[in-house]
């Protein structure tokens, strides 16, 4: 195969030594790892990852988010951490803390790009190498949960992430879908991926379940409804709940308002809290 393209960006981190340095430079201090997966794009993996992290934080947990969507990293923007730099300390890269209490830390390729419009035009092997580095070289410190946000599909990033994270079990997968059949079709394939790679499925979350018209309060199922629950039943995995579409929340994510503060006011919050509770209490179920 001819490589027609220049190697692209390098991932040399900005070097200043940070004063803050948690001890183990890997995942030894991480108690649970949850991969957020979906066969289809745009179903809200990053939104659910972000909101799940916030809900777990509300439950008093210390949470890390690892964004392995290398071609389309959206989490830095969603948590207003855009433009922040990753520093280096003796035990590795220091993740970016998104709140003052340092209860949510985040690592994303977004922090390594020179400009936010920079395209990461990489083929598989290079993506795999960076994901391995994210797993081995980031000083996560002590975490209750590490939420791993993935790109759509069942390819390089997913295999690299599962391979690199496997030694640090327990590793569970949370599968996100929207209700319509086209999305459910892709998610069925994702469940097969979980089965083949031996990933335990924590459960299925249905996102964008309904939209309440702000003018007449009519609830429209923009993307149909019920697909997620039916899929969970079919596959024999737990159904964790439906999260409604909340334009206010989208707007808050978009406008860089204090999403962390606004989050508990959203109608999506009770849904997310209940999902987080199930994640906290439920041992991952193995896919039959």
């Amino acid at each position: 195969m001819t490589a027609l393209f220049p190697p692209g960006i390098s991932w040399e981190p900005a070097a200043p030594l940070s004063s803050y340095c948690p001890e183990p430079g890997n995942l030894a201090g991480v108690r649970h790892i949850i991969l957020v997966l979906s066969g289809k794009g745009g179903v809200g993996k990053s939104t659910i990852s972000t909101e799940l992290a916030l809900a777990l934080r509300h439950a008093g947990k210390k949470v890390g988010i690892l964004d392995v969507d290398l071609c389309g990293p959206s989490i830095p923007r969603m948590l207003r951490a855009q433009g922040r730099a990753v520093h280096q300390c003796d035990s590795g890269w220091v993740p970016v803390f998104v709140d003052q209490e340092q209860s949510i830390s985040l690592m994303s390729v977004g922090f390594l790009l020179e400009s936010p419009d920079e395209a990461v035009v990489w083929r598989g092997p290079k993506k795999n190498a960076l994901i391995k580095q994210f797993v081995s070289d980031v000083a996560w410190g002590q975490l209750d949960y590490l939420v791993v946000d993935t790109p759509p599909g069942t390819s390089d990033e997913h295999m690299a992430a599962v391979e690199a994270l496997r030694p640090y079990s327990p590793l569970g997968a949370l599968v996100v879908t929207t209700p319509q059949a086209v999305s459910v079709g892709d998610v069925r394939r994702e469940l097969t991926f979980c089965r083949k790679t031996g990933l335990q499925v924590v459960g299925v979350v249905e996102n964008m379940s309904g939209f309440v018209c702000p003018h007449c309060a009519e609830c429209t199922n923009v993307f149909s409804r019920g697909g997620g629950e039916a899929l969970a039943r079919l596959a024999g995995v737990p159904f964790l709940g439906s999260v409604p579409l909340d334009p206010e929340l989208t707007r808050s994510l978009e406008e860089g308002r204090d999403f962390i503060r606004d989050f508990p006011k959203s109608p999506a919050f009770p849904a997310l809290s209940s999902i987080a509770q199930k994640v906290l209490s439920g041992a991952p179920a193995r896919l039959s």
Partner: peptide
């Protein structure tokens, strides 16, 4: 980067028209 001409951009899911009251809202503002 790969010198591929761009025909143009399509904005999808622009506005949502409530099937009941026919008023517009923006789900993805």
């Amino acid at each position: 980067k790969v010198k591929l001409p761009i025909i143009g951009v399509v904005e999808n899911m622009s506005v949502f028209i409530c099937p009941k009251c026919k008023k517009e809202s923006q789900i993805f503002p």
